[in-house]
């Protein structure tokens, strides 16, 4: 028995971020299960045929069915957006601050988590495309017309990379929206209004937005696309961190 007490510890910032990242990965497994659920659902939609055209006369009838994994990718975008918003909410924040954290470590570990989510989401979404083709081959294989039925590896890899990049961008946007809502609940109204306004009206009136959109989305070179998307994503995340750094928690 003594009265010397417990000595203070000097925490390392990056160590704390790492610990929180691992804690989040373990603790948010449910979100990945949700992703698998969403992707399976999207696959089932795809199997019924994304679009079909028919033509012919009484003697001969052609029917074309286009199968693609686009639906899975769109649903994955939706999933990561929702996840990004979700983890900015008070409930998830409180879990962070149960143990050692400050605002920045909490955000950086969230960013790490979303990057992981984008990679896993991108890979599974693209692989599900291959799965879709295999399923179709075994069920209606006789009628497959596509010459590149199984895409070349570099095409698949490029597909995965592009998907991951877009998922990153979407996650950053989702996170930013979430942070805005945490700053003020007014944004719950403003953000959807802004979105609709952008599509409907602003795009016509403000060519800047169209240019920004084309600058990022309309890029044909993978390397350039990567640079553009990564810089934009990093900027959006940086804004989120700065904006949320003075927020009160718990």
């Amino acid at each position: 028995m003594s009265l010397t007490g417990i000595s203070l510890t000097e925490p390392s910032f990056f160590d704390t971020v790492k610990k929180q990242f691992l804690y989040k990965l373990k603790g948010r497994l449910g979100l990945f299960l949700a992703m698998i659920g969403v992707q399976i659902m999207a696959l089932l939609f795809s199997l019924s045929g994304a679009s079909s055209h028919g033509m012919g006369d009484n003697l001969l009838y052609f029917s074309f069915n286009e199968f693609s994994s686009d639906q899975v990718i769109w649903f994955t975008f939706l999933w990561i957006f929702v996840v990004a918003v979700l983890i900015t909410t008070k409930d998830y924040q409180n879990i962070d601050f149960t143990f050692v954290a400050n605002r920045l470590s909490s955000h950086l570990s969230n960013v790490g988590f979303l990057i992981t989510a984008a990679v896993i989401g991108g890979v599974t979404a693209m692989l599900s495309g291959i799965l879709l083709r295999i399923v179709i081959y075994f069920t209606r294989g006789h009628y497959l017309l596509s010459e590149n039925f199984i895409a070349a590896p570099e095409v698949v890899l490029t597909g995965i990379a592009v998907t991951i990049l877009y998922l990153l961008l979407v996650s950053a946007l989702g996170y930013f929206c979430g942070v805005l809502v945490q700053l003020s609940k007014v944004f719950i109204v403003i953000l959807p209004a802004l979105y609709i306004g952008t599509v409907d009206f602003l795009a016509r009136e403000l060519p800047v937005i169209v240019k920004v959109y084309n600058f990022i989305i309309g890029e044909n070179s993978l390397a350039l696309l990567a640079v553009k998307v990564l810089i934009t994503t990093a900027l959006i995340y940086a804004c989120s961190c700065v904006l949320a750094n003075r927020l009160e928690v718990r």
Binding site: L8, E10, P11, G27, R28, G30, N102
Partner: peptide
């Protein structure tokens, strides 16, 4: 962060990940 690492705050609102 230094205060956070040397302090713990216990109340009945404590939240933990549901999957753990």
């Amino acid at each position: 962060l230094k205060v956070a690492a040397n302090m713990i705050f216990i109340d009945d609102q404590m939240r933990f990940p549901q999957s753990l």
